[in-house]
């Protein structure tokens, strides 16, 4: 192998607010990369779910942001960073069914309050940092073992 084979791969995808048409493209691209590297299907599925939820979170609830995937052979890290209102009560937001999404978005089938709980189910480690009025950063780690 080449000298830099230990270096993790980084994929950064900018996400626009309320861009429902492109929402999910970032997660799909991350999935494709992982599939071409050859991660096991169950790992890919967990990353696909977590990345998709994190991406849709940014689309629905923020003023935009980015998803960054860092890939090494034994851990896949997704960092979803947004500019936005922030989450006032993280513990509450982690509860299933809790949503602040407006009704018209819920009617589109999004914002059912399952985003963060779904991410937690797929992640081996997850942290949520949020500052009101500034934005939120969600860090998700999924181990390949």
């Amino acid at each position: 192998m080449k000298r830099n084979s230990k270096q993790p791969l980084e994929i950064v995808i900018p996400i626009k607010m309320k861009d429902f048409k492109a929402g999910g493209d970032g997660a799909a691209r991350i999935k494709q990369v992982l599939q071409k590297i050859g991660f096991p299907p169950d790992i890919i599925r967990r990353v696909a779910i977590a990345a998709y939820e994190a991406e849709m979170n940014i689309v629905i609830n923020s003023l935009g942001g980015e998803i960054k995937a860092t890939v090494s052979t034994d851990v896949i890290t997704i960092i979803a960073r947004d500019y936005g209102p922030g989450i006032p009560d993280i513990e509450l937001a982690m509860q299933e069914g809790y949503s602040t999404a407006p009704r018209e978005i819920q009617e589109m089938g999004f914002g059912a309050g399952m985003g963060l709980p779904n991410i937690r189910r797929c992640a081996d480690r997850m942290t949520v940092e949020s500052k009101q009025g500034q934005g939120t950063t969600i860090t998700i780690e999924i181990y390949n073992r």
């Binding site: 590297i37 050859g38 052979t73």
Partner: peptide
């Protein structure tokens, strides 16, 4: 059929 290499580390390097 889509993976770049049967070995994960090699495939990762190829993805770079």
């Amino acid at each position: 059929a889509l993976r770049l290499d049967p070995d994960l580390a090699t495939a990762l390097e190829k993805m770079h």
